[in-house]
């Protein structure tokens, strides 16, 4: 065997396509988040039955509400997953989402004057995603070319996007006049909200990109050892640029869906969601040091947060406990992650 062509080595498709040879560490971490989610649901179920004699999870309304509740943080968190795996962080996502929500509202209204309602809606969503890409490009250039640490670069963009969003919105919320847009945000298909369907499709696409493409593979490599990735010939600067554009566009879609759900664009739409997105990624098993994490882990992480927030309201606990509960879950997740890391480190020295 000599060197083969580096591209397109065709092998007959296997039944186990899509089996990611991901590190077992990440797999355990991902499984852990789902396990945690199951435990959490059982807790709320028991609590709910004991307190009110009512079911929590078997109530379709609750499930739907939690799912809708989780959509926006999940969209931010999928982009954030890529960024955190690469060893970075994107603090600007919350206000990029707000900016996109305002752009979606304005663009849909403006387009609605001249064209049919469905087309105006699509144009509005497209405009939101594209405009969201602009701060993403700036983030990417700052971090890759000017070597500004991601924390600082995106913190700066957090302020810029925030200001731009409020200026564009004129300091208020921008209502959307488009019946299709409202339907997208609140309609259902056989009982499943459109928003949830869109988020589910989106998650599958993002999982594919992360686990099955070169872009995803390079993302893991960069997060583990950027020098190794660079020596292997990976275009680090180009990758980082695309990475931050991708995460910004995720937030852009999140903003557009927010505008659909509330039939209004608001600059502060994503403000509380930024930290939720980081929390979802961490609870989902990613390490803030980079190199590990999965999209499905993040899905579990986002659901954990949504269940805690919705569940505590459902069992009638004062809402401020949500913050404490989510905060504790984050700390516990990181502790488990570190314990696992030490465990695998010990194996290494055998």
């Amino acid at each position: 065997m000599t060197s083969t062509s580096p591209t397109e080595t065709h092998v007959a498709p296997q039944a186990d396509h899509g089996d990611p040879a991901r590190s077992w560490l990440a797999r355990i971490a991902e499984g852990r988040a789902w396990l945690f989610l199951a435990g959490l649901i059982i807790c709320f179920e028991v609590w709910s039955r004991l307190s009110f004699g009512a079911t929590f999870v078997l109530n379709p309304f609750n499930v739907q509400s939690i799912a809708i509740f989780a959509v926006a943080p999940l969209l931010l968190a999928t982009g954030q997953t890529f960024v955190i795996i690469s060893g970075g962080i994107d603090l600007s996502l919350g206000f990029i989402m707000g900016l996109a929500a305002v752009v979606a509202a304005h663009a849909t209204n403006m387009a609605g004057v001249a064209m049919p309602v469905p087309l105006a809606m699509m144009l509005g969503i497209l405009a939101a995603v594209i405009v969201a890409g602009v701060p993403g490009v700036i983030n990417g250039l700052l971090i890759s070319r000017l070597r500004i640490p991601p924390f600082i670069g995106t913190l700066g963009m957090f302020g810029v996007a925030r200001g731009a969003a409020f200026l564009l919105a004129g300091g208020t919320t921008v209502p959307v006049q488009n019946s299709w847009f409202a339907l997208l945000g609140n309609g259902r298909f056989y009982g499943v909200p459109y928003l949830v369907i869109i988020a589910a499709v989106f998650v599958v696409v993002m999982h594919y990109i992360l686990s099955q493409t070169r872009f995803g593979q390079h993302n893991y490599a960069i997060g583990a050892n950027v020098q190794a990735a660079s020596r292997a010939g990976i275009d680090i600067k180009g990758h980082i640029l695309r990475l931050y554009v991708l995460s910004a566009m995720c937030a852009g879609l999140g903003g557009a869906l927010y505008a659909a759900r509330f039939t209004a664009g608001a600059a502060q739409a994503g403000e509380p969601l930024l930290l939720d997105s980081v929390a979802a990624v961490v609870i989902g098993g990613a390490s803030l040091f980079g190199g590990s994490g999965t999209i499905f882990g993040t899905v579990a992480g986002a659901l954990v947060i949504a269940v805690i927030q919705y569940g505590l309201v459902f069992v009638n606990v004062e809402p401020f406990w949500q913050f404490i509960a989510v905060g504790l879950v984050i700390i516990i997740s990181v502790l488990i992650d570190q314990a696992q890391r030490r465990f695998s480190g010990a194996r290494q020295d055998e």
Partner: peptide, 28 residues
């Protein structure tokens, strides 16, 4: 890259791809 397998390290930066369902490229 410590988090990747031996194969993924050998092919880092020049990963082989295959197609599933006849159109979708995935890492081989």
């Amino acid at each position: 890259a410590d988090n990747l397998s031996i194969g993924a390290n050998i092919f880092l930066g020049r990963e082989p791809m295959r197609k599933v369902f006849g159109f979708l490229p995935v890492l081989d």
